[in-house]
């Protein structure tokens, strides 16, 4: 099991150079069964990361470029009248896959965004009164440009909350940059990569995450963190966010090869889990503030 995880990270890191931490976090998010939001400037490797992950995990992968004229039906699918059978036939949209890359999600209109987000929460779509289940596992990896870019619709808070994690990639370091320039990584090589896992393997790993032990001492710490956000900041973490934090910490511990969660795990995942939920008032240091203020029990 541990081998699989290490292989996934190793393979992905071959493509996404010098971003092992981000690769680990993305995998954490997928292992915890949540959707991932990658926020960064264009050309930082967001799409590559999503694409690579899907490929390494051996999952079905679809990519949809979100634009302002994209309609919900373009993602979910449409019912088309079939003259032969004299009935409506549902033509599944790109959402029927394991990993949906919603590229530049904040370029779409709120209507389209919410159609996607509903599917994310329910793991099913309903068209013309018929409910269609999405394949298992199902992830959305959305990428978005920073809000201040022209032609974007900021995701509302309620929808941000549906993303378990938000990560940013940032510029590569000098060494990785040089390797990249030498054409030793990046998207060009992504298609050559071998899958080291498959959908069943991933579901098993997800099962494994639930087995990671969370001690009472750690629950105390988690509660203190959640309580701190509720009393000392304008908006507190929702119970869903609290659960998500626990699951991410468990997944992180699993990736680290442990069967119990330590405060280090919580601290490692906390910025990615809480920052997009709490930073509404522009306080970008909120995660650091929480971690510095709350004592470890």
């Amino acid at each position: 099991m541990q081998k699989t995880i290490q292989a996934i990270i190793h393979a992905t890191s071959h493509i996404i150079l010098g971003k092992e931490q981000q690769v680990k976090l993305s995998l954490t998010c997928l292992l915890a069964g949540g959707h991932l939001l990658i926020e960064d400037l264009p050309g930082m490797g967001k799409t590559t990361l999503a694409h690579t992950l899907a490929q390494v995990l051996g999952l079905g992968f679809r990519r949809t470029q979100f634009t302002s004229d994209l309609l919900p039906a373009d993602i979910i699918g449409v019912s088309v009248f079939d003259r032969n059978t004299s009935s409506f036939q549902f033509h599944a949209g790109p959402i029927f896959t394991n990993v949906l890359l919603a590229d530049e999600i904040n370029r779409a209109t709120p209507k389209t965004q919410s159609a996607l987000l509903e599917a994310m929460e329910e793991h099913q779509v309903t068209v013309d009164g018929n409910t269609h289940l999405l394949p298992q596992p199902f992830f959305v990896i959305a990428t978005q440009n920073p809000k201040h870019h022209i032609g974007t619709f900021a995701l509302p808070e309620s929808q941000l909350d549906r993303f378990l994690m938000r990560i940013t990639l940032g510029y590569p370091d000098a060494q990785s940059e040089r390797a990249l320039l030498k054409n030793q990584g990046g998207r060009a090589n992504a298609s050559s990569i071998q899958a080291v896992c498959d959908a069943d393997g991933l579901l098993k790993l997800q099962q494994q995450v639930h087995q990671v032990h969370v001690s009472d001492a750690l629950l105390d710490y988690l509660q203190a963190l959640i309580q701190y956000t509720r009393t000392q900041t304008n908006e507190g973490l929702s119970p869903r966010a609290g659960l998500g934090l626990r699951q991410c910490a468990q997944a992180w511990a699993l990736i680290d090869g442990r069967d119990f969660v330590t405060p280090e795990d919580v601290q490692a995942v906390l910025p990615s889990v809480v920052a997009h939920r709490l930073a509404q008032d522009g306080n970008s240091n909120i995660a650091k503030q929480i971690l510095d203020q709350v004592a470890i029990t």
């Binding site: 330590t262 929480i290 470890i296």
Partner: peptide, 9 residues
Amino acid sequence: PNNGETVLH
């Protein structure tokens, strides 16, 4: 140890 510093850190 600082307030929010974990054992390992």
